[in-house]
Amino acid sequence: MRVVIAEDLTLLRDGLIRLLSAHGFEVVEAVDNGPMLLAALVEQAPDVAVIDVRLPPTFTDEGLRTALEARRRRPGLPVLILSQYVEQLYARELLSDRSGGIGYLLKDRIGDVAEFVESVRRVAGGGTAMDAEVISQLLTRRSRDEPLAELTTREREVLALMAEGLSNLAIAARFGVTDKAIGKHTNNIFAKLGLPPSDDHNRRVMAVLAYLQAGPASPDPS
């Protein structure tokens, strides 16, 4: 599997190269700034890119913006954004083109090597890998939004794990139930969110997006 890495701190870049190489990835290019990243993504068309959100020259969310730009040019290009902190705003922007292949994880998660590698593979396969922190921030909000308010507690839990990128089988294992039972929950979630029947993968992305996008309607007129 061909991967492009963008990280400006040498220590972490070398660590990522070593880690991914050791798990069967082929690191085709490792860059340390936004413009070089864009060139690498467009020219190399890797199976997945692992990108630090903050990159030179601006040292702001250069990595995120570059990833979004690359996906505009190559729709569906799988990208996994790493960050020292997570913002729902950014999660929402990443998912907004609804084509999957998106990861957004705290850098700390690299420390959990097996799970991190699994996340990279999942994103490369067109899935999602949202950090548990994004999800937990969402859960602190009261059930403020239609139609998410209609979901039962268990359905919300299932949706949260779906957002993290877990399959029905993996979610079933978490709860100690059969994946069939989870399948029932996911179908209820799709129905309540009004997602039309399509392939299961796409609907999962849409459900997660609905979860992230659920916000207030229009501004107060006064």
Binding site: R54, Q84, Y85, R92, R141, R142, G215, P216, A217, P219
Partner: peptide, 27 residues
């Protein structure tokens, strides 16, 4: 907050509004 450096005042307030437990309409 890093998002303030990244996106400026409007972006950062937008991000903070997303975290508010009650719905916040932003303009």
């Amino acid at each position: 907050p890093p998002v303030l450096a990244d996106r400026g005042l409007a972006g950062a307030i937008e991000a903070a509004a997303l975290l508010c437990p009650i719905p916040v309409a932003t303009d």
